[in-house]
Amino acid sequence: MPLAFLAILLPTLFWDRPVDTADTLRKAGFERLYVPAGREQAWRKEGFAATAFDRAGAVQAVAPTVEYHMDVASATRVPWVDANGWRFEREPGRSFFYDAPAGSAALAAAEAFTYGACAAIRAAPEDLAPFARMLKFLGEIDRPRLPVRANIGVIDDGSDTMAEVLNLLARHNLLFHVIPSADPTYDLTIRNVAEAANPYEFAMKTRRDLTDEKRLLRIYGSNVVLVRLTGDTSQGRVHLLNYGKAAVKGLRVRVSGSYAHGTLTAFAHPGEALEDYSVQDGATEFTIPELGTYAVVDLVLGSK
């Protein structure tokens, strides 16, 4: 069965090691696997729900991380974030493959989950425990997907230049949809890639054209956290992905719209609650006391 037709809700471990590692996976809590074609029967005999995964047919995802290019001149001193959100937006329905080096599998899982992407993640053995914990967490917070919110429409010409523009929009939390043609429901439509000779400047121009006041979601207190916003007429969900190595303390989030209350569910920080919650001037703000790898904030529209 083609992978695209599998009802896969969560990212899945890709495991190409011998079957005699089955106990290791069991102890870590894995029950479902992607394996190289031809090995699925052997793994099924060990009790795993194993499915063959075609690496060659999948889009290669980068290992999510932050790179500090201290020696590279830049208009800002912002670190470079290697993220895949823009790829998921650009190619919905495709399968993605992460070859995740040690320390990145849990974030890769959270990233793929955030975007609802079908993803196989090849994890380092030392990452099995945190990866499994993340999958358990994602299973606990999973619920029917709400529409993705964005107010920038991008008519994608498929070029490498536009790829970099998409990357930078996502990098700067400028929420966009890839759209087939101009749509007046978006506050801003991007189409002319000829202007994007300098993708960074083009992304910043996009931000200026939109204006910060119209941005659906903003964060303060970190430059390594990327967000995604989903919602409908009664509720919203903010996904927060921390690409840095360290937890972010005191992250401030501003969401367009008046939400009566919000609930924080943070990976590895059970019981943590939102702080300094305020609703003012058509926007809702709150503080995440400590953001580890990933958290979601569920918001309910309306007055208290």
């Binding site: 800002t76 972010v248 303390k249 992250l251």
Partner: peptide, 17 residues
């Protein structure tokens, strides 16, 4: 780290995007 700062008292401006 932003945890020790007041989220309700600030100066906002964009200097360099």
């Amino acid at each position: 780290s932003a945890e020790s700062y007041d989220p309700a008292t600030y100066v906002e401006t964009a200097f360099f995007d």
